[in-house]
Design a binder for these strands. Sequence first.
DNA 1: GTGCAATGTGAAGTTAACTTCAACTCAAGC
DNA 2: GCTTGAGTTGAAGTTAACTTCACATTGCAC
Lengths: 147, 147
Amino acid sequence: MDTLSIGELAARSGVAPSALRYYEREGLLHAARTGGNQRRYERADLRRVAFIKIAQQVGVSLEEIREALAELPENRTPTKADWSHLSSRWRHRLDERIAVMERLRDQLTGCIGCGCLSLQRCKLINPDDQLAVRGTGPQMILNPPGA
Amino acid sequence: MDTLSIGELAARSGVAPSALRYYEREGLLHAARTGGNQRRYERADLRRVAFIKIAQQVGVSLEEIREALAELPENRTPTKADWSHLSSRWRHRLDERIAVMERLRDQLTGCIGCGCLSLQRCKLINPDDQLAVRGTGPQMILNPPGA
DNA sequence: GTGCAATGTGAAGTTAACTTCAACTCAAGC
DNA sequence: GCTTGAGTTGAAGTTAACTTCACATTGCAC
């Protein structure tokens, strides 16, 4: 057969049936129904679920993932080109997130040297938190001066 | 004065007072009290809060953060060496997480070429999901063969 | 010393992303 | 054809990490 029951999709994707039903309620996934009202997924849905998992790994909310998936064609199985398009957009997200984490790491590494951990600038240099006026939180990482 | 009220710490750290109280209930933070029962924080607590924010950025739960912070000395203000030790441990975490995301990105990039997005190995090469037996989910990223 | 913003507390509410439950129906093997 | 393991639904429960609320108390400014 070329369709999958919810249990099969769950086993293949590593996502619990209850989560798949939840995704359906949330509009991230759609399933055809058998005469007896059971869900039947297409193999293409494996990709869809894979994409959802990947995006979650990157820290994206289901809400945003749904919006992204909404760009895929509804009336036909997505083609390579469709997935390519989506994937490359997400590649950018990934790149950005990696960049943030690298800045975080480098800043942390720099702070190991003086032990300050202020992340707004080393306390030894800037003992009065003067950078606090730029906003709250770890400014140097989320909003580096050079970006 | 060299202590901070909860409002001051909140403003400096970018963390809401309610969150700071919550952290205290959860054992991540401790504050001295004035005669009138108001919290007074030491300047060293700015570092503590900064560390909490950083760790959260990395996707670590407060539970784990609390465990990490528990390694700091309780009876004295943490020294540079104390923070250095903690920081270098977290640098490893960051490195690992960055590595995972880079694998994710590279895999995604690879899949853009064929449009498959299977992440268990390109479907064109492995049309029957044979890798599914290795476990559920995106194995190649979370558990790369070479790791 | 008085006023009013800041702070205190416990309890309840919120959001995301699911899971669990109860009660029922479907479907595949013997 | 009967059993039994999947599957269905709506509703309620769960967890993390907070926020909001109501109401009492404090403490700096004038």
